[in-house]
């Protein structure tokens, strides 16, 4: 007797639970389509424009960030190292190489949710293209580590996973359609724990 209402209820439960859960999952998992991925670094040069896809628009409306305009800069985020393993705050990483052409760049670490890590003024928690120490061929090596390092030290004071954010300011990279061979710094794990 209750067969038909039961079936209708089942269909409705599947529809609402599945629809809401899949939408939330999709918006959490990605910023949308149209990304530039160079090694572990990912950027979304179109996310702030009117041509952004519906997922990108829904994502940015939920995140509520002030995004960079095309002439301002391009923000690359890395959640993994070059081998694909997630960046762990217990480990040390070497970020080495050069950046794509830009007038200026900044590098800092965030939590997995995107909140900037601010360990305090006594340790260097961010590096930019003026303060970085370079080799004779203008390449640089930045040591992201919880323990103090010689050279360029990016202090990571955090538990769990973190992300690296490299922002290129006034860069032609945003408009490039993959015609220029873009070189981003490599992220290589050098060790974990206190050693």
């Amino acid at each position: 007797m209750f067969r038909v209402p039961l079936l209708v209820a089942l269909a409705l439960i599947v529809a609402f639970a599945g629809g809401i859960a899949s939408a939330l999952w999709a918006l959490k998992a990605t910023v949308g389509f149209g990304s530039i991925a160079i090694g572990p670094w990912v950027a979304f040069p179109e996310a702030q424009t009117v041509t952004a896809d519906p997922y990108a628009k829904a994502h940015r409306a939920r995140a509520g960030e002030l995004l960079y305009g095309g002439a301002e800069g391009l923000m690359f985020t890395a959640a993994t190292d070059d081998s694909g393993a997630r960046l762990s705050a217990a480990c040390s990483y070497d970020i080495s190489g050069i950046t794509p052409p830009a007038r200026f760049w900044t590098l800092y670490a965030t939590t997995s949710d995107g909140a900037t890590l601010r360990p305090g003024p006594e340790v260097p928690s961010a590096i930019n293209s003026w303060t970085v120490l370079r080799g004779a061929d203008s390449r640089f090596v930045i040591h992201a580590s919880p323990a103090a390092q010689p050279g360029n030290w990016l202090a990571i004071r955090h538990m769990g996973n973190f992300q690296l954010v490299l922002t290129l300011l006034d860069t032609p990279t945003a408009g490039s359609s993959g015609l220029i061979d873009l070189a981003m710094p490599k992220i290589v794990k050098t060790g974990c724990g206190d050693a």
Binding site: V14, A15, G18, G19, S22
Partner: peptide, 17 residues
């Protein structure tokens, strides 16, 4: 019923986004 539910879920997903 589950199949109808899945179709509804796809529709709802698009509407939410």
């Amino acid at each position: 019923a589950i199949l109808v539910g899945l179709a509804g879920a796809a529709l709802l997903h698009i509407i939410i986004v």
